[in-house]
Design a protein around this nucleic acid. Structure first.
Lengths: 118, 118
DNA sequence: ATTTCATTTGAATAGTTGCTCAAGTGTTAA
DNA sequence: TTAACACTTGAGCAACTATTCAAATGAAAT
């Protein structure tokens, strides 16, 4: 890994800084995982789903009403959130109730909200 | 806005919950802004750039070396980060030095890091 | 058994995104 | 003034994503 690619002629301007930053940066693996966490929350629909589920356990039908999107679209997003272990579900007859599996994410959203309100 | 779309037959299963959640959810505008904040950090390249700039002010050339990506690609991403007011720059002769404009984002990343490490 | 209904799923599609390539700025050095 | 260099920019493209549509599943009601 870390193959050379064409950079600028001088290649590196400030060796000291580059070395220092390179050592302090998280490993690739961790950066990718981090970015994937943010990616889940980067879509308005998914964000609304997470926000809604942070308040109440909800069935797919009610979620669709709240987020104002088709049942199918909600279901696809819930599938994604399920695979990322952000939500769990519980079946009750024909209906399926979803809830947050990971309250940690709500803190992230809260902090981002403060950031947006400036 | 809020046009009706085809939802399930019963339309709403639990009126009480739906009403409560609907009132508590942030306005569309705010949800979109929130998701856009997360979107900036949802790409590994941009995340690395932000992480690097949180440690040192860096020129485009050194940033490209650190992130291991072409100068052009870095420049495109910096343009985006500039437009979102996340970075500022300073010109010094031929070179351009970038730095974070908004330390707030670093807190977000720190908290997400804790979340990932579980 | 058949129908109804909540939900899931796969395929198709329009829109977005991150990168490369080639050309363009503007500044410094020769 | 010309050449070299750091960086920017626009077009083009391949990969990805969110949604829709149609069909499928599986539980309850008839």
């Amino acid at each position: 890994m870390n193959e050379k690619i064409e950079i600028c002629k001088t290649n590196i301007v400030n060796h000291g800084k580059v070395k220092k930053v390179n050592q302090a940066l998280p490993k690739n693996r961790e950066v990718v995982e981090l970015s994937e966490t943010f990616k889940v929350l980067s879509d308005p629909t998914r964000l609304r789903i997470v926000l809604a589920l942070s308040m109440e356990e909800l069935c797919v039908c009610d979620l669709a009403t709240i987020v104002n999107i088709s049942i199918s679209a909600i279901s696809h997003q819930l599938r994604l959130l399920k695979s990322r272990k952000l939500v769990t579900y519980r079946k009750e007859g024909k209906m399926v109730y979803y809830k947050l599996d990971d309250d940690h994410v709500v803190n992230l959203i809260t902090q981002a909200t403060e950031h947006v309100r400036e």
